[in-house]
């Protein structure tokens, strides 16, 4: 059980929250996108978190009893709900009836999730700096 692996756990949390924030920003940017390479409007994406063992070959050799579990993104799910249809007959992507399929995205929801991701990231940074202080205190014992 080493404090250094606690830093890896915190870093995995930072990486996961950052990836989630990237997806949320992508959703916000594409809130009005009606064309995608796959055809149809953009679809909202969200990350699914999963706890995993943080394994480094060096640490696992010494550290067999206490597994601190980090976090990783296990899946990125794409929203499958029906797109929002708005009546815009002049729009180039309008169908025969004059309706345009827009992504089913609520910007307020994504904004709140984005704040939650930012807070989660901050919490992980705080955890890493607390652990770093403890390691520094141990090193100071040598002086």
């Amino acid at each position: 059980m080493s404090l250094f692996s606690a830093i890896s756990v915190g870093a995995s949390g930072m990486a996961a929250q950052r990836a989630r924030a990237e997806l949320l920003v992508e959703n916000l940017a594409n809130a009005e996108t009606t064309r995608t390479p796959d055809g149809g409007p953009y679809r909202r994406k969200d990350a699914v978190f999963e706890s995993t063992d943080i394994s480094s070959p060096f640490a696992s050799f010494f550290d067999t009893q206490l597994h601190g579990s980090g976090v990783a993104i296990s899946d990125i799910v794409t929203d499958t709900s029906d797109p929002e249809r708005r009546y815009m007959p002049g729009h180039p992507d309008a169908d025969a009836d004059g309706y345009v399929a827009f992504p089913h995205i609520n910007p307020a929801e994504d904004m709140v999730d984005l704040m939650s991701a930012a807070r989660g990231y901050e919490a992980n940074v705080a955890a890493i700096s607390a652990v770093k202080d403890m390691i520094q205190k141990s090193i100071d014992l040598l002086h």
């Binding site: 059980m1 080493s2 404090l3 692996s5 606690a6 830093i7 756990v9 915190g10 995995s12 949390g13 996961a16 929250q17 989630r20 699914v48 978190f49 999963e50 706890s51 206490l66 601190g68 579990s69 980090g70 976090v71 939650s116 989660g120 919490a123 992980n124 705080a126 955890a127 890493i128 607390a130 652990v131 403890m134 141990s138």
Partner: peptide, 24 residues
């Protein structure tokens, strides 16, 4: 005491990392 504290700190860190993991 310090050994136990660092073990506990590691668990706290993984709790924070998994603050948004479903079912954790």
């Amino acid at each position: 005491y310090m050994d136990l504290l660092s073990a506990r700190q590691k668990l706290v860190t993984s709790n924070i990392a998994n603050a948004d993991t479903p079912g954790y």
